[in-house]
Structures are given as structure tokens and as C-alpha cells.
């Protein structure tokens, strides 16, 4: 599949760090929550970005470096090129569920929450950030917020809130996307309680389609077998939470 240009119809500033682009048109196949696209700005770069919603197609992008800064410069009427959707997304099973997001992890989980709402599955969405001005806007009513510094919502880590919720009521599955340290904690908490989980892993991606091997993690390809993995797959990943491959394939701390 070659990149397809999409016109930006609206841009919303979500907080100090992230913006959401609303796009005209749809991808060649219907994406599911957790799947991603390779987003290209000609002359600047091409990066993996999770699909944040359908109708209209949305991408939520945090400003962290050259590519994402260029995205933040885009205006209504500009174009962004996409190929995808790629990878395996979240599999919705059973109820009720807990969704837990850190940083731009809110993007695929907002999309997942919308799908769950459609299917009448009860859930709570935990959205965590370092501080108040990095929290996402409240798009989903069933959202609880927390900040590490306590400037808004509960004080502490998103996983503290997860632990509290799990001790109160039974949950069929926990869905997570965010920094790897948060996902490690999530896996630990769910592991102890034997609760199934699905988490989306970030690994350095180049081709996005399962040929170059840049995003390998213990014999799994994040772009093709993931980015969403369940507890059984994660159990076979000794490198999870420890190491990842950088742009050159060197092992660095995850």
C-alpha cells in the first residue's frame, strides 16, 4: 500500500502537548482500536501513529521531536499522508473493562471506549498525566483523571487508581496504552490478580508491515503481531520493560 493524502478538516488543541487532527475520508479498510497508521509528511518523515477515532478519522499527536513538531505546525486544509491500518488492535472481550491511558495512550483508548459504548460494554477509563495541563479533554463520560502531582483528579499514578478499582469490583480485562513503566506496573498488578490484560507496545518502527524487523521484541513484531499484545504473549517477552531496539537495532533501555 502506498501513502494516501488526507486533508485536515479541523485541528483541536487537547492540552499543552497534544493536538488532534480530524481528517476527510477513510482508510482503505476499517481500522480497529489499537491499530496504527504510518503518517508521512513529505520531506520531514514518516512515523507510526495510533488511530484515535473514526467518523471522522482522527489522529492525536504529542509534540516530542521533529516530526510531531511539524505536525503541530499543520493547518486546516493541509494534507497528511497515511498508509494503513496496520497491526493487531484490541480484542474486545467480556465486561466490565478498565481502560488505562498515560500520555498519548489516550488516543487508541478513546477509540476503544467509543467502540465499547456502541457495544454497550461497561467500562471505566483512567487517564493519567504528570500534571493538569497534560491531561486529555474529557471526551468519554466514564473517564477518571489522575495526575502525578495531584494538580487535577486523584494524586498518584494511573496504576494506583487501577489497583484501587480492581480491589473494589470484578473486571474481565484491562486495556492499557502508555509509557512502558506504566505497562510493566499494569502487568504486575493484573498478573497478581490473574486478570487478563491487553497492552499496546511502542517499538521503533520503520516499514510498519512486518519485513524489516526493526520493531522486534523477543521474536514478536510490534507492527504485525502487535502493537497490542495480551498477557500470554507478554509472558513470552523477557525484554518487556527492560530493553528495546533503537533506530540502528542497538539494544537500549525500554
Amino acid at each position: 500500500m502506498l501513502p494516501i493524502p488526507f486533508e485536515i478538516t479541523k485541528i483541536s488543541k487537547d492540552n499543552a502537548k497534544t493536538r488532534t487532527l480530524l481528517l476527510a475520508g477513510q482508510l482503505p479498510t476499517r481500522p480497529s482500536p489499537g491499530q496504527f497508521v504510518m503518517a508521512w509528511l513529505p520531506g520531514i518523515g514518516e512515523k507510526p501513529i495510533g488511530v484515535a477515532g473514526l467518523a471522522p478519522l482522527r489522529l492525536t499527536i504529542a509534540k516530542v521531536g521533529p516530526f510531531s513538531s511539524a505536525v503541530h505546525q499543520l493547518k486546516k486544509g493541509d494534507f497528511i499522508w497515511l498508509r494503513g491500518p496496520f497491526g493487531k488492535g484490541f480484542k474486545i472481550k467480556g465486561k466490565p473493562a478498565i481502560l488505562i491511558a498515560g500520555g498519548y495512550g489516550i488516543a487508541p483508548l478513546t477509540f476503544l471506549a467509543e467502540e465499547m459504548k456502541k457495544r454497550k460494554i461497561k467500562f471505566t477509563l483512567i487517564a493519567g498525566a504528570k500534571t493538569k495541563n497534560e491531561l486529555p479533554p474529557k471526551k468519554i463520560p466514564a473517564t477518571v483523571f489522575c495526575t502525578n502531582d495531584g494538580s487535577s483528579g486523584a494524586k498518584g499514578f494511573a496504576t494506583d487508581l487501577l489497583e484501587k478499582l480492581l480491589s473494589k469490583s470484578a473486571v474481565s480485562c484491562v486495556y492499557g496504552c502508555g509509557p512502558e513503566a506504566m505497562l510493566v506496573k499494569l502487568a504486575e498488578i493484573c498478573g497478581k490478580r490473574k486478570i487478563p490484560f491487553q497492552i499496546s507496545l511502542d517499538r521503533y518502527m520503520k516499514c510498519g508491515i512486518g519485513i524489516c524487523g526493526s520493531c522486534a521484541i523477543n521474536g514478536f513484531l510490534a507492527c504485525k503481531d502487535g502493537p497490542v499484545f495480551d498477557e500470554k504473549q507478554v509472558a513470552k517477552m523477557p525484554d518487556f520493560g527492560k530493553t528495546k531496539l533503537d533506530e540502528s537495532g542497538r539494544r537500549v533501555r525500554a
Binding site: 502506498l2 501513502p3 504510518m38 514518516e46 512515523k47 520503520k206 516499514c207 508491515i209 533506530e247
Partner: peptide, 14 residues
């Protein structure tokens, strides 16, 4: 020596 390779897009398929 290590090499980072070319920037993306690096692979296209059709």
C-alpha cells in the same frame, strides 16, 4: 560500526 540507516519512508509496497 552501528548505522541508523535512511530516514522513513524506507519501504513501500504495492
Amino acid at each position: 560500526e552501528p548505522r541508523v540507516g535512511h530516514p522513513n519512508p524506507t519501504v513501500i509496497e504495492s
